[in-house]
Design a protein around this nucleic acid. Structure first.
Lengths: 376, 376
DNA sequence: CCATGTGCTGCAACCGCTCTCAAAGCTTTC
DNA sequence: GAAAGCTTTGAGAGCGGTTGCAGCACATGG
């Protein structure tokens, strides 16, 4: 089994693990990335892979013929084919797709871009759905779908560089903050489809009808009898968050209620805590619309800990229909957000664009559904 | 804000949502990926991006000079540089990295490969750590780290093809089942580092000392007084699962106890349920070593539901030190598995390999720590 | 004033592959 | 037996870059 271990090490910064730790081992200082020039890691690869040329030489034919065998389609004599096949297996030849991409202009790689840190991406159940949907759309093609997220200090440029690099055919972009990425990409030649309004004209996207959904959610609270309703929004640099806030205010205004009771959250579980601020501003709070389930569930916990009964004292409704909303007591009412479907639709739109059979601009608007459970 | 929505649609297969659904909208049949030839999606891109040549023409210089300006380093006259810069911004030129990669043999892209379906990847807290660690290692270089997982029906070939495609410089491979992927890659020219023993000689990897850790865990149960101990293993086609089982049996044998009480799980929460089988086989069960925390927590729940007190009647220890183990009652004792650190170390090893300053084969073995909490 | 040096730029080959076009070999036909 | 028609193959021109090397213009030294 493998070679012999040469180094033994381990580490665990004495972080709060909430228990007693035994068996600690010293940690070596982590070597850092060696750099040269302007922050670029320089690589030099030793061996180089066999090329078409090599195969051709061994098989005693020309490059063109090998290419024909590899790509199929064109007719090549049976025995030639066999000789080439043999040479290919002998050398363990794999075509260099980057070179091929240069001439075919197709890489066979699609990226799902999420301009969030990896922590957020893995913490929020929304992103797996997006990725899953994209994967589905490409499942029976031989496209490789890769996921790229941003790193803590990143601005948009690393992403843009990757997208324009020629290593991907196109991209789906999922959780963008503000129009900067879209702007950078708008005049680029890279086919992209946004999930959520990019706020830049001409850039194709699909989005949930957030405003309508937020109205439905708010109206539902009102119908159930809530009057003093507050909302926890998402980060307001995101279109979806603003739209949900808008929908909330519309519904409140229509009902002749005060729609100014809102506080900004971050779409993450922790920021559900801000419900306390709503409570400070409105001690008679009897309804909460949280812009996603993660925040809603936290808010529910906070309210319950403060002695409020849900839904008797305060009704709560979330957004996204995340599974976590079914694991709390009472179960959370919510608005569906079939992200996987959207991603798939977006991916299919991307495929159309890539196939060239393209309408100018194309935007898709998707509807949401109200799911009533115990919390309202 | 963007163009006008052209299409409105939504969908929600009437899946079990555990609530009442209002506001349903018809769903269009999802268009499927258009295919041609052997399962390959064909793309044709309309516009094409400006090239070096274009820039050179506008700036009135040669391609070589533009290249020099773009890449810096070599000396170019100040006014020439300026002219080129101007042309570049005018055309919004971005170098085609695929073309560059052809000659420099560096793409600036590193892949983290996880041969699991996306559901598993997002469900298990282990993978985010791996990705995070990899990201850290490359954080101050301008390498793009992408994540690729396999699709339900996939065999290894799509992965291998991607890795050998020339679109990535190298890869970290995280949760492989059996040696097939490693074998396919062993004679390839692609620099890869495995996290976990690939079971193929000559392929570099880093791994946790699973056997030793499992021994420590088991010994801990014995020390606390457990005698009739069972284990829930991971999928036994994975080296880590087998090693943890081995460690368990060793510790049991050393203590003169029966080490045959085990049942295979899948490293996912659901498979913690198999603890019932242990109970069937040994009603006097008083200790459980689960090969990861996900299974341990589920097992604890099952046992408690069956009236067993933890740790009074049955002691439970898990593996991985996942956060979920701190959210249950009692809190779960466990073995640490600082996956992020491992991934970072693996990434640094990969960087070394890519830099060419390479030891033949290099394997790293990492230690684990026992964390004692309430469950033992 | 000519030989040298120095600074900057262009030519051209090459990275690995695809694909058009024409040539070569073979059959068929008159 | 030569012309015509196929099938099969190879030569060669790119794809968009990088880079070694030669060449040019101008400044310097003898």
């Amino acid at each position: 089994m493998g070679g012999t271990p040469l180094v033994a090490f381990a580490q665990h910064g004495n972080a709060e693990v909430g228990g007693t730790i035994y068996d600690t081992v010293a940690l070596p200082s982590a070597r850092s990335v060696r750099q040269e020039g302007s922050g670029v890691v320089r690589f030099t690869v030793g061996h180089s892979a066999p090329t078409l040329e090599d195969v051709a030489r061994i098989a005693g034919v020309s490059r063109a013929t090998v290419s024909r065998v590899v790509n199929g389609g064109t007719l090549v004599a049976a025995k030639t084919t066999e000789a080439v096949r043999e040479a290919i297996t002998q050398l363990d030849y794999h075509p260099n797709r980057a070179a091929r991409a240069l001439v075919t202009r197709r890489t066979g790689v699609i990226a799902v871009i999420v301009p969030e840190t990896d922590e957020r991406v893995f913490a929020d159940p929304y992103f797996p759905q997006v990725y899953h949907g994209a994967l589905q759309a490409f499942s029976d093609s031989d496209v490789q779908v890769v996921l790229a997220m941003s790193q803590p200090g990143d601005n948009a440029s690393r992403m843009v560089r990757y997208l324009e690099s020629g290593h991907v055919d196109g991209a789906l972009i999922a959780s963008h903050h503000g129009p900067s990425l879209a702007q950078a990409l708008a005049h680029s030649w890279q086919p992209v489809v946004f999930i959520g309004d990019p706020e830049v004209p001409g850039v194709p996207y699909i989005e949930l009808d957030n405003r309508a959904a937020a109205r439905v959610a708010t109206q539902h609270l009102i119908e159930r009898g809530s009057r003093r309703i507050g909302t926890i929004t998402g980060p307001l640099d995101m279109g979806s968050a603003r739209q949900r806030l808008e929908g909330f205010r519309e519904a409140m205004a229509e009902a002749g209620l005060d729609g100014d009771l809102y506080v900004e959250g971050g779409y993450n579980a922790q920021s559900g805590q801000v419900v306390e601020q709503l409570l400070d501003r409105a001690p008679d709070l009897d309804g909460v619309f949280a812009a996603n389930d993660l925040m809603a569930v936290t808010a529910m916990g906070v309210l319950q800990r403060l002695g409020r009964r849900v839904p008797e004292d305060v009704r709560i409704i979330g957004f996204d229909d995340a599974s976590i909303g079914r694991q709390c007591t009472p179960q959370l009412s919510t608005m569906t957000n079939p992200a996987a479907e959207h991603a798939r639709a977006a991916a299919e739109l991307l495929i159309e664009i890539l196939a060239g059979g393209l309408p100018e601009t194309r935007n898709l608007m998707a509807a949401s559904q109200l799911v009533v459970r115990g919390s309202t």
